[in-house]
Amino acid sequence: MGNFDHLAKTHPCLGGEAHFKYGRIHLPVSPSCNIQCKFCRRGFNKSEVRPGVSSLLLTPEQAVETVKKALTLCPEISVVGIAGPGDTLATDHALETFRLVKKEFPHLINCLSTNGLRLAEKAEKIVEAGVETITVTVNAIDPKIQKDICSFVIDGDGKRLEGEEGAKILIDAQLRGIKKISELGVIVKINSVLIPGVNDKHIKEIAKVTKELGASILNIIPLIPQNELSHLEAPSCIMLDKCRGEAGEYLDVFRHCKHCRADACGVPGKNQDIHGQLYDKEVVETFSHG
């Protein structure tokens, strides 16, 4: 496992300088999710630039071929990331893909994004698959706040948990997972969606607690008002800067996020996306083993 300073020089989602020099490819291999955030609306289309969106699903085998093609189109790619369109740990597709990618392209950095519900449970398998950096989306560490952000959680037995009960299960799992994966040597970034009137005064607490558990950097993502939170307004630049300043007292803050799609590819700081060249046909594909 590399250290944070080293990885930040070549990982465009960890370091500001790398953001303008190096590329990443997001492989859309994870079809389903085990929680429902109130701001999240997963979908398949060609136009929206936001997380949870892809134009297709790839099998792990197709994903490897896609990386091969992407490297010919964009040699600056240094990171293979999996961030959806569902949760990467809700099924085994992401870890299977990483194992194949690591074998074929050992020089690339493997990066996984997750809601953290199954992070502690799968920590060893994540390391075995060759994952070096992980992003955990933590929007609250207080169940009273989390219940207003997450509609429900599906536990390991398939039971749907709502309200504070579900919120507590999620938070406990996230915090245990962050601590465990950090201790195993994986670099941890925290993503927090900034939701005005809900968690804007709470982001600094997330930074403080996750830093103590081993996180290296925080990315505060402005809310895109949609789904159950479509009635809210996006945070102002003033609110975003204030939250970044408060959180930055505890944890380094990443300031270059582009709200990337689950099938994004290219150098993000240059607004270069080779998606259209990468996929010959813009169709939604599904696969059976999931």
Rank of each mutant, 00 (worst) to 15 (best):
V136M: 07
V67F: 06
V49L: 12
P85C: 02
F105I: 13
I126W: 08
K147L: 05
R50Q: 12
V64Q: 06
V101F: 04
R99A: 11
V79D: 01
G81P: 10
K68Q: 14
S54D: 09
V138A: 01
N139F: 04
L57E: 10
K103V: 09
Q36V: 13
K144T: 13
L95E: 04
V29G: 02
P143I: 08
I35D: 05
V53Q: 12
K103M: 13
S47P: 00
A123Y: 06
V136N: 04
V131F: 02
V67W: 04
P143Y: 05
E121P: 05
L108G: 05
L89Q: 04
I77D: 00
V153A: 06
S30Q: 07
E128K: 14
K122W: 07
S55T: 09
A83Q: 14
P60D: 07
S151I: 03
P60Q: 10
K102G: 14
P51E: 12
K103N: 15
V136L: 06
T135I: 08
S55P: 01
H93G: 03
L71I: 11
K125A: 14
V101G: 02
E104R: 14
P31C: 01
P60A: 05
K68V: 06
L117S: 09
P143K: 10
G130M: 10
R50A: 12
S55W: 13
V136Q: 08
C150K: 03
V153P: 05
V64T: 08
I35H: 04
V127Y: 09
L57H: 03
S47M: 10
I109R: 06
H107N: 13
L89G: 02
L108Y: 04
R42V: 00
V138W: 04
K144E: 15
I149T: 10
V53I: 15
L117Y: 11
A123R: 03
R118Q: 13
H107F: 14
